[in-house]
Amino acid sequence: MEATFNSLAYILLFITLSLSLISLWKPHKVIEQISLWSTFLAFASLSLALIWRGIYTGRVPFATLYEFTLLFAWGILLLFFIITLRNIKPTLLVALVAFLEIVILSYGGTLSSEARPLMPALQSVWLELHVLTAIIAYGAFGLSFCLGVLYLIKERAGDGGPGKSLPSLGKLDNLLHWSVVVGFPFLTLVIITGAIWAEEVWGRWWGWDPKETWALITWLIYAGYLHARKTYGWQGKKAAIMAIAGFLAVLFTLFGVSLLLPGIHSYV
């Protein structure tokens, strides 16, 4: 069942991507509507996959890299829908989000989805809060990455070509700032709950483990973004580039560290 819902989400996202590309080429209201609906169905389907997994394993699906990859994809979609509630759904954003989702889920497909019981170290409410806050933080940063890319595209293309469906530069910059402002306090929570968990399980709240270190680096990058934007007036292009860099650090924290750098987190 879980696999079925996963595949369904995957297919729906492909439909979203294709339809939104088509409507970029030849804008059409109905096609845009359908592509938005299919994103929503993909979100629902992914939610069902996660719920199913939770019921099947008898625990929250917060423990393996595979599970977190699904949650990561879920969080980006969640933040995307929150932003569409503000009546902002440019076709190019839909296409970009769908593409990012497909990349993440494809990677998830290569990971072991074996449903293993929770090892003792992972049985902690702090870990659950840690993952819960991470879903929102990284979802918001995923969205700000997409908005940063859109900003760069808009700046290049102006009102013609791919820039046609996009809101103004000022609006994109504000949306980008909004999503970082949502992500930053949640990233702070991720780091704090992680530190408390580490103190409860290993007796050290900070140990410069690669995953911890990269979460801190991400935090520093987004703090840099907030300061530069505020005091240097680094809005626009430079800010967009910083937001993109921040998300690359997020990806490295989640996947790069698990693959390349050894540490106590290597089981997650």
């Binding site: 410069w208 690669p210 270190t213 520093l220 530069a228």
Partner: peptide, 21 residues
Amino acid sequence: SMKLGLFLLLILGVSASLGSL
């Protein structure tokens, strides 16, 4: 100065990444 502040955030980030790599 914010210049120093941003510079410190950058240097600390780069150093920490070296420490992890």
